[in-house]
Nucleic acid binder design. Structure first.
Length: 220
DNA sequence: CCGCCGATCCTCT
DNA sequence: GAGGATCGGCGGG
């Protein structure tokens, strides 16, 4: 009768102060925490197992590196808000804004383990066979949660979408390494993941492949 | 398991 | 006009 509920032990909601710290500190501390979207029968809860930190103006790999634009405006606002961006013409990915207002640092939510609402999660991810893969990768995680353009700017501290305390991961249970898919500052080890956990994606270095030559002026 | 590759369109230069 | 904080299918070892 009742829909899915919050998993036992999901704990208190994380506070503004939690997010208002440096991105690499927040990132590491987010592992094992629980993202919740929806309510009642539409509840989906995911335990975070992979995240990535991005600094603001000092980080060439950050979307905020070249200053404020229409797309990244949320990054320059208060910590604890969601920054959703559209990439490769088809995927939405979710960040949590960190640090003080104006710094524009953030943490990309890269993967997790579905704790609640796996039926709905599977509906949102047709074609995914293994339950452990439902929230694997930043686009998959956002999709499972039902997040998209309408979610951009949402406040995790006061809104319906939430981040709950869950259980912090011990130092000896996590790994760190270079960030996935970035073509600059790739050596910065700001990717954090729970070693061997579901939802952790394989490392992929950024690759620039030659684009098909335009066929506009030549006969087809 | 691993690596290559296309899809697809928004964003900023 | 180029390139992107990706994904999943396919083919080879």
């Amino acid at each position: 009768m009742t829909g899915p509920e919050l998993p036992p032990g999901s704990g208190r909601r994380l506070t503004r102060a939690f997010f208002a710290r440096p991105p690499e500190v927040v990132a590491r501390d987010l592992l094992g925490r629980v993202v919740v979207s929806g309510s009642g029968p539409t509840t989906v809860a995911v335990r975070l197992t992979e995240v990535e930190a991005y600094a603001g103006a000092d980080d060439p790999a950050s979307h905020a590196f070249r200053g404020s634009t229409a797309r990244n405006a949320v990054m320059f606002g208060p910590a604890g808000h969601l920054y959703l961006y559209f990439v490769y013409g088809m995927h939405w990915c979710a960040n949590v804004v960190t640090g003080p207002v104006g710094e524009a640092s953030a943490v990309l939510l890269r993967g997790g383990e579905v704790l609640t609402g796996s039926d709905l999660a599977a509906l949102r991810r047709p074609g995914v066979r293994r339950t452990a893969d439902l929230a694997r990768g930043p686009a998959g995680l956002a999709t499972v949660l039902g997040w998209g353009p309408a979610t951009n700017g949402h406040d995790l501290v006061t809104g319906e979408e939430q981040l709950r305390a869950g259980r912090r991961v011990a130092d000896d249970a996590l790994s760190t390494g270079p960030r996935v898919g970035v073509s600059v500052a790739a050596q910065v080890p700001w990717r954090f993941w729970v070693t061997g956990a579901p939802g952790v994606s394989a490392y992929r270095a950024a690759v620039r492949r030659p684009r098909r030559t335009g066929s506009s002026s030549m006969g087809d």
